[in-house]
Every structure is written in C-alpha cells, then in structure tokens.
Amino acid sequence: MRFHTWRRITWAYHLTFAIAVIWPIQSLVNTPKPFVLGLPFQMAWPAAWIVGSLLVLWRLDAARTRHIGATSAGGDE
C-alpha cells in the first residue's frame, strides 16, 4: 500500500483508539470476562489498542521508507 494511504490509516486508527477507550464505547466494553492472558477484558482492551498502534506506526514507517526510496527525494537523514 502507498505511503499516503498508510498515513490516512494511521490517523484513522488513532482517532478510533481515542474514541474506543472513552465513554460511550469503553462503557460498553466494561466486563472483566473473558480474561485475556489473565488480564480483565477492560484492561486488555486498551492494551490491545496500544499493540495495534505499534503495528500501524511500524507499517506507516516502512511505507514511508519505500516512498522516499521510490521518489529518491531523500532529505530525511
């Protein structure tokens, strides 16, 4: 996927993340069961979003590196 697409995905992901961990979404995700790796579900919920953030940002950066390589614009270092 192209860099600009990943940039949009990254924005959308973090906006969704912010909405998902506050009222009203988080109040719907408000049960300790099922446990995930021993953690109550409401605690695993933000943790999963954090791990997702790592993956999305990592993919964005990879797409960015390819994009810069392709356009040979450089100027980053």
Partner: peptide, 12 residues
C-alpha cells in the same frame, strides 16, 4: 494505561 500512546503518536 491509555493516554501515553495517544499523546505520543502525533509526534510522528
């Protein structure tokens, strides 16, 4: 737990 990553992501 939640706010740190939300605060840091815009720094990208």
């Amino acid at each position: 737990l939640t706010y740190g990553v939300l605060g840091m992501a815009p720094w990208y």
